[in-house]
Simulated assay, not measured.
Amino acid sequence: MKLPPGATGFGTDSRQSKKDLQDLAAVCHHAARRTGGAVAELIPLGATPNFHTATITYPDDRIAVLRHGLLPWLALAKPTRPGQAPRDWLDRTELAEAIGEVSDLRILTRDELLQPLGSADLADLAAAEIKQIAYWRPTTVGDLLFNLWD
């Protein structure tokens, strides 16, 4: 997988960030209605984490929809406690299809997120991002893209 500049989330524009959170909320409310769930929580990105989170609840499940702070990418994961990075990536076809009805955001698959970082193409990342990767030592693409680095 080739990672574009900004993959680590450094350099987030707060004005764009607010719009991205509003867009995520709208997308998730639509997807939740279509799949029998409800949006229970919206958490904006900050210095950490580098992603917005919307939690969709179902009678027997909860799914976190993560929106990268710079890239037009989403990931689905089991919700975590505040201050914990996502680890349990999910593929949910019905939810992904409902999101795709109203958004052109790319939904990363579980396999993409679990790809070892050593096999990813980092050539387009800025020197500052490479330095952060060397410091934090993420092991997978998901660890790099959706992080709590400060």
Score class of each variant (00 low, 15 high):
T109Q: 09
L117A: 02
D13E: 12
L42N: 06
P138K: 01
E129T: 00
D143T: 02
Y58E: 02
T140R: 14
R15Q: 14
T140E: 11
A123Y: 14
A38H: 10
E97F: 04
D20N: 12
T12E: 14
P5T: 05
E41F: 04
R62H: 11
F146T: 00
T109I: 05
D20F: 14
T57E: 15
A96P: 03
L71T: 09
F51H: 15
T12Y: 05
T53Y: 01
L113S: 04
R110M: 05
R92Y: 12
A123D: 15
T93R: 09
P79T: 08
D13H: 10
A126Y: 08
V102E: 03
P138G: 05
T140K: 11
A96R: 15
A128I: 10
T109S: 15
T93D: 11
E94Q: 12
W149C: 01
I56V: 15
T93F: 06
A127C: 00
A75D: 07
V27R: 13
G83F: 07
D124W: 02
P82H: 12
A134K: 04
D143V: 04
H68K: 03
A25H: 15
P59E: 13
T12H: 08
P59I: 05
H68N: 07
S17I: 07
V27P: 00
P72R: 04
A128M: 08
A128T: 07
V27G: 02
A120V: 11
A77D: 04
G36H: 11
L90Q: 11
E41D: 06
A64G: 07
Y135I: 14
T35H: 06
S103T: 12
A120C: 15
P79R: 08
R34K: 14
A64V: 06
V65C: 06
A25E: 15
I133G: 00
A25W: 14
K131L: 04
S119H: 07
L125S: 00
T80K: 07
T8P: 01
F10M: 10
A77I: 05
D121H: 13
P82A: 11
A98S: 10
A32K: 03
A123G: 14
P138L: 02
A123K: 15
R92E: 14
I107Q: 13
L70D: 01
G100T: 09
I99G: 01
V102S: 04
R33C: 08
Q22F: 06
L144G: 00
I130M: 13
I56N: 04
D20Q: 15
E41H: 11
S17Y: 06
D23V: 05
H30S: 09
W136K: 04
R92S: 07
P79N: 11
A25R: 15
N50V: 15
N50I: 12
R106K: 12
